[in-house]
Computed example of a mutant assay.
Amino acid sequence: MNIAIVDDEKHCIESLEMDLETLELGHHIIFKTSKPMEALLELPKLKVDILFLDVEMPLLNGFELLDQLDKIDFDVIFTTAYSEYALQAFKNKAFNFLLKPVDIDELKDVLEDWKKEQQKRSYLLDETAVKDLLSKIKNEGFVKSKIAIPTVNGFEFLKTEDILYCQSENNYTKIFLQTGESKLISKTLKDVEKTLCNYLFLRIHQSYLINPKYLKQYNKTDGGYVIMDNGNSLPVSKQKRHLLIEFYDIISRN
């Protein structure tokens, strides 16, 4: 959770920082300023998730600041001592609104609501991923191709159809093949996923990317896991269960 704070009252920034630290939400305050003009220049350069934005500020109020930004790819939580700004805040598509002095329990509730909303957004993105995969299957079938993986002396070419699954090993990825071999490469699983998602591989967990061709069984018990054709059991994260179920439900109907 990358947080930015813009408030012309420095003591309000400090108070909000202390409350966030008390809540221990795993956040990072990547930008804070009491000067709205500085925020106008710096915010477009940053990857912000939530902006806590004061309304009443000299030279440029919070609403005017947002109006002058070319792109707003973060959620805004307005903070102000004046409740009459609430309606205008929501008209400006604010995620939420907090009255000063900010109550720490209200702050906690707002941020928990934000986290829930992020999960919903993730679900919608996964639904889009399912539709894209199904479209590829319908139009192209299971694509047969090769990918190049780095070796000490150059590259090795692997058939994507021979890959059972990939497992994260911190900044490395171990690729398991249907021959029983495995290859350890110096790429993160996220990088490997960018390549293999074009060949209908599914991310079922933060540590696992599978080839559905070799999926033998999905079991909902014990938190959810799959069994691959080689007999190995792999966990399915709670966030990815619906993706796996929906994918195969639609496959079975087509």
Rank of each mutant, 00 (worst) to 15 (best):
D162A: 15
N2I: 01
I104F: 13
C12Q: 08
L133Q: 11
K32T: 06
K32V: 07
D113A: 15
D49K: 00
R203L: 07
K220H: 12
F95R: 00
N198Y: 11
G223K: 02
F142C: 04
G231F: 10
K238F: 12
L51R: 00
I175W: 00
E169F: 09
E140P: 00
K115E: 10
K187P: 03
K144D: 12
P44I: 13
D103A: 09
K115L: 11
K93G: 06
K100G: 12
D7G: 08
E24N: 12
L189V: 05
Q118I: 10
P235C: 06
V192T: 03
L177P: 01
I245S: 08
I147G: 04
Q206C: 15
L46I: 02
E17K: 11
T33H: 04
L59A: 13
P36M: 03
S186K: 14
A81F: 05
D222H: 12
Y165I: 00
F78A: 01
D70K: 14
H28W: 09
K183R: 14
E84T: 09
N198D: 10
F95G: 01
I245V: 14
K216D: 13
N171W: 12
G154S: 07
N170S: 15
N211H: 04
A94H: 04
Y199R: 02
F155N: 10
A129Y: 06
Y82V: 10
S252E: 14
F201T: 00
K146P: 01
K35A: 15
Y123V: 09
P101V: 06
E64G: 06
Q68K: 12
L215R: 00
D8G: 10
Q118Y: 07
F90H: 05
L46V: 02
A86H: 03
C166K: 00
L215A: 06
D70S: 13
S135H: 12
L20E: 01
D49L: 01
E181K: 11
I72P: 02
G180T: 08
V76F: 02
I185T: 02
Q217F: 14
D249L: 11
K100W: 05
D162L: 07
F97R: 01
I13G: 03
L184F: 03
K47Y: 14
S168C: 07
D222T: 07
Y225E: 08
S252V: 12
F31R: 00
E56T: 09
Y165D: 02
I29A: 05
H242E: 10
K71M: 13
A86K: 04
